[in-house]
Design a protein around this nucleic acid. Structure first.
Lengths: 216, 216
DNA sequence: TCAATAGTGTCTATAAGACACTATGCC
DNA sequence: GGCATAGTGTCTTATAGACACTATTGA
């Protein structure tokens, strides 16, 4: 009997300044009716890679299309799935909007319900990695909308890192990197205060952010 | 037909201050007689995880036991192996000694021979990651012997990073981290000069070095 | 005018780099 | 003593953090 090969996706987003993960109720055995990560088998006839499979599974099970998707690693062994020796390739996705999908429900990453298989451990490991990586990369950019204010980005960093960041050094570093550009003329007004300049990721970095680590 | 599941190991070491990778000549089809990474199938009856499988394969094909082993990621798709849709979990290992094994041969990582499958791409990706990670972690410690001089460690960092590092700030950072300890009384003498103090990784960090990233 | 958040300027503490200086062995 | 590498001290420069200051809106 060959090993079972699956992919799982850890979809993360910020809700009320707190990291949340998207979970769904499994509709098939094993573990039917319980919370689990969106995941599934690789389809050899349609998936040209494991990452493709993860993107497809995410679309099918959460109706979220092409977010930021990065491989985390694998989990494997004879005991983690009752069907036998299994290996899952875990991907994590970061999205800006608390998406309106009735296929999944969002849970704060430190208040998870009981999860199937080793999915609790998987979520914990991914969150640890994301927090860690936020400290030396521009990862949290993917947690804000396409156009955002410095304050919003600053808040996203603080939420993910779980610590306060000085605002002036934060701006200084952003400036020095040249990774952001102003959206000309666009501002956002929230209260009765000075409106904030909107920014976006500069075109030349649009699809390279995950590569350029250690930028912030 | 189910997907083919394999593990491959990228074993790296320093030889003449240059990163080398261990390759072997495949003895079975496909790609028989050509250079490839040590790799093989997961054995469901004896491997309790993919990492276990990688360690076993490394021992069988290179006679190297329990080096530093870290998961790099996966490579997958319908075309990379002529036998069909395949996924390989790639691990990299770092060892100190240019080991005496007639099972493998060492090649400089930027002068590789023709390699089977997508192994050339795999080696390149791993080397890039290792170079990158050396910039913010203590990874290169695994490329020197258990007891080493500061100069040797300094040279290892310079080799992996491909750039010169100031010696005094290098020492300062090592001191500040408290990750190393002197081997009492032990020194190494190479020429007609002052002998160098030998150091080793402090006990409390012995098995945690890969976890404590961003230390150097 | 005030309240509230956006954004800037500047002072200070810390860390990095450069490099001169001392230390200790063999010849 | 001379030479070669090990190791230290110190000066300078770049960067991070703190925080006070100015800017711009609605009420």
């Amino acid at each position: 009997m060959p090993a079972i090969l699956t992919v799982d996706a850890v979809l993360l987003t910020l809700l009320d300044s707190e990291l949340h993960v998207a979970l769904h109720k499994r509709e098939t055995e094993p573990c039917k009716g319980h919370w689990a990560l969106p995941g599934g088998y690789v389809h050899e006839d349609e998936d040209s890679s494991a990452k493709d499979a993860a993107a497809r599974v995410l679309l099918e099970k959460t109706a979220i299309k092409s977010p930021y998707l990065e491989e985390f690693g694998t989990f494997s062994g004879p005991l983690r799935d009752p069907r036998g020796w299994s290996l899952t390739v875990v991907y994590f996705a970061l999205v800006a909007e608390p998406m309106a999908s009735n296929l999944v429900e969002l849970f704060p990453v430190n208040k998870l319900p009981a999860l199937c298989f080793d999915h609790h451990k998987i979520v914990d490991s991914v969150v640890e990695r994301v927090r860690n990586k936020a400290g030396y990369s521009s990862l949290p950019v993917h947690l804000v909308a396409k156009e955002f204010t410095i304050s919003e980005l600053h808040a996203a960093y603080e939420s993910v890192l779980g610590e306060r960041l000085g605002m002036s050094s934060f701006r200084r570093r952003l400036d020095g990197m040249g990774i952001l550009e102003e959206v000309p003329g666009a501002t956002r007004l929230l209260g009765r205060n000075r409106p904030a300049q909107l920014y976006r990721v500069a075109l030349r970095y649009r699809n390279k952010l995950s590569l350029r680590d250690r930028v912030l």
